[in-house]
Amino acid sequence: MKKLFLFWFLLIISISLFAQTLPRIKILATGGTIAGQGASADRSAYTSGALPIKDLIAAVPGIDKLAIISGEQISNVGSQDMSVAIWIKLNQRINEIYKNNEADGVVITHGTDTQEETAYFLSLTVRYDKPVVLTGSMRPATAISADGPKNLYDAVALAASKEAANSGVLLVFSESIFSGREAVKTSTTHVEAFTAPNSGPIGQIYDGKVVMYQSPIRKANKNTPFDITGLTSLPEVAIVELYADAPPTAINAYVAAGVKGIVTGGLGNGNLNKANTAAVAAAVKRGVPVVRASRIYSGRVTLLDETDDEKLGTIVSDDLIPQKARILLMLGLTQTRDKKQLQEYFFMY
């Protein structure tokens, strides 16, 4: 009896010591396809955000061997309904988690429609250099060969690794690791849905092992100038995409509606046709900052090329796609309306 007691005592102590060595990972769930349910396993139609976080965690074999897992439901929406309000809530919760030492790493489950935007927003506003990793899936949890469990396993492995520290906000998908700034969704249906057109992946996860190829340079984290503590909203910024013979209707309407800034998804090197150049000039004259981005998702929009930005009064997005340029302009406008300072943000972040 004494030997049996000693055996169980030592086993409990060993398990306790093992558990203490595992990192603590907090999973913040927002909904999306990864939490989706369909009518049958062979149909693509599904309802986003139908499963709670506890069910997502339970569906991943071996995840408890990577870390001590806990979960919270921040929202439960398809990411087409992601909002600034949810972004602010996420940012506040992540900063709170690290301030109070509640976890060693944070994983966010998120729909893919706007995942690249949330990743960039958090990369500019989270005030800690500890791991923040986003992931999701292209197939709902009820589908044949659902990709969500593997992506979530990899995201936890990354957040639990020493390589994730000081790397900024990361996005992991289909075994590739991307900087939150650089990740772009480039497929509507394929499981390899994300790429980073200007830089490529910065690492890979295979069999739960993290290998980093490079470290992101353009990141903010604890040194971010964008302190949104106490804010419940951000300045409204609109995006206008251009095309052949595009009229200035959208720009004029947004200015009339009182938006605080405009990003143009221009042609080629962010170019504007004559009608929209005139509309942009009028917007700038009325005090509305305008950022020239491009509808092309790789390459840079350069200063003083085909467009005389000094004369027109515009800002260039550098290599940010329009939806990410919008985020930086919204955050920039919480700090300044000075055109030179706003332009500097685009070259820094």
Rank of each mutant, 00 (worst) to 15 (best):
L10I: 13
I12C: 10
F18K: 05
A19C: 04
R24M: 08
G32M: 03
T33E: 03
Y46Q: 00
G49M: 05
I53D: 13
D55G: 07
I63Y: 00
L66K: 07
L66Q: 10
A67R: 11
A67T: 07
I68K: 14
S75A: 14
N76R: 09
I88A: 03
K89R: 12
K89V: 08
L90P: 06
R93Y: 11
I94V: 04
N95I: 10
E96W: 08
Y98A: 12
N101I: 11
V106R: 04
T112M: 07
T112D: 03
T112P: 01
T112Q: 05
T118R: 10
Y120M: 05
F121C: 02
L122E: 07
T125Y: 03
R127D: 08
R127V: 11
L134H: 06
R139A: 01
R139D: 00
P149Y: 01
P149W: 02
K150F: 02
D154R: 06
A155K: 15
S167L: 06
V169P: 09
V169C: 08
V169I: 05
V169F: 06
R181E: 03
A183K: 06
A183V: 14
S187P: 03
V191E: 13
S199M: 09
S199Q: 13
I202C: 10
Y206L: 14
R218N: 07
A220G: 05
K222Q: 08
T229D: 07
T229I: 02
T232R: 00
E236D: 15
I239L: 04
A246F: 03
N252G: 09
G258Y: 14
G261N: 12
I262F: 12
V263F: 04
G265A: 13
L272Y: 10
L272E: 10
A278R: 13
A279N: 10
A281E: 13
P289K: 11
V290T: 10
R292G: 09
S294L: 04
L303S: 15
T307K: 07
D318P: 06
D319W: 11
L328P: 01
L329Y: 04
G332I: 00
D338K: 03
K340P: 02
Q343S: 01
